[in-house]
């Protein structure tokens, strides 16, 4: 009956989106009168027992070097084995990069209905199990009913708050049937110290109003004082001013940070789709008619090249006072 949470790691460290999935899973377990267990694949550096403070009671750890890189084919087989051995009826993933490749495979393997992109807790009443998810790239949400006995939810990053209390998880090894995967990783490139866009609490984003890639320095400075990730609009990525991985919007990445600061972005409907789940939106644009102001919480009508450095200084001052 238990709830099983897939705990995703990168370089042996637990991802923030997995902590969200654990907290969410613990709440779902509480709602269904059961407990949450976790599954971790590959060798880890972090202390798994400490994850108990997020509400997970037991962690099944398959510490096998063959699982150090995510291969969805291999991972789905192992997670399905754990789900069957523990009798889990609800399986939680983060709808992050790995979740998007593994959850569908586990769904097909166990013939368990999957809701990907979940943004709130399920509504459970009798046999009904309904989960809210984003659709139309964030322009709307939908309530989806899962009809199978085993249910799988892939939770959007930043959609559920991390809360910690007291507790230690029991970490147990799990004997899984593992054969080498077919995907051979040849290189991993990671910008060190950079915050992954989908996990960032604050995102600073630039559009065509920045006039060229050489002007990104002022946005980088702003992002630095806020510990924010950088993003951009589609025309910026298409013009190769910034990498495609920073493109947020309907045909790029969808994000839901606490704070989204858009500089020199007019706010086309396709861009809004990817960011309108942000909790607070700030728009800086010199055109008072820019459609983005209609979707914003706060705004400044002004020249980005004058406003942004002043804004950065003001934040620096605030942080100095606070420390």
């Amino acid at each position: 009956m238990s709830v099983l949470v897939f705990i995703d790691t990168a370089d042996g460290q637990i991802k923030k989106s997995s902590l969200e999935a654990i907290c969410y899973g613990a709440k779902v377990a509480e709602m269904s009168g059961t407990t949450a267990e976790g599954v971790v694949l590959g060798e880890v550096k972090d202390d798994l027992a400490a994850l108990g403070k997020y509400g997970v009671k037991k962690i099944h750890h398959i510490s096998n070097a063959l699982l150090n890189h995510t291969d969805s084919q291999l991972y789905a087989k192992v997670i399905a084995q754990v789900a069957q051995a523990t009798g889990a009826k609800t399986i939680i993933f983060s709808n992050n990069v790995n979740g998007k490749s593994i959850a569908p495979r586990v769904s097909a393997r166990l013939k368990a209905g999957l809701v990907s992109g979940a943004i709130s807790l399920p509504e459970i009443s009798g046999p009904d199990f309904i989960v809210k998810k984003t659709v139309f790239s964030g322009k709307a949400s939908a309530n989806v009913s899962v009809k199978t006995e085993t249910k799988i939810i892939a939770l959007n990053p930043n959609a559920y708050k991390i809360e910690s209390g007291e507790g230690t998880a029991e970490v147990v090894p799990f004997n899984a049937d593992i054969t080498a995967g077919k995907i051979k990783v040849i290189q991993t490139t990671k910008a060190s110290g950079e915050i992954p866009l989908t996990e960032a609490d604050i995102v600073v984003s630039g559009g065509r109003g920045m006039k060229g890639p050489e002007n990104w320095g002022i946005l980088e400075d702003l992002a630095k004082v806020l510990h924010a990730a950088l993003a951009c609009s589609r025309p910026v990525a298409d013009s190769h001013w910034r990498p495609h991985s920073e493109h947020v919007g309907q045909t790029g990445v969808a994000i839901a940070p606490n704070l989204y600061i858009a500089v020199g972005i007019s706010g086309a409907i396709q861009h809004l789709a990817g960011v309108n789940h942000s909790k607070i939106i700030v728009v800086i644009n010199k055109d008072p008619e820019a459609p983005f102001f209609k979707a914003a919480d706060y705004g400044i009508v002004g020249d980005a090249f004058e406003v942004v450095p002043k804004l950065t200084d003001a934040i620096k001052k605030l942080k100095e006072v606070a420390s």
């Binding site: 009913s145 309108n276 102001f293 914003a296």
Partner: peptide, 21 residues
């Protein structure tokens, strides 16, 4: 395995608070 029960549009924003440049 799943079915769409209903859809919702996001609530409208309260309106932007403008700050002088």
């Amino acid at each position: 395995l799943t079915g769409y029960v209903s859809f919702e549009l996001p609530p409208a924003k309260a309106g932007v608070k403008l700050v002088p440049a």
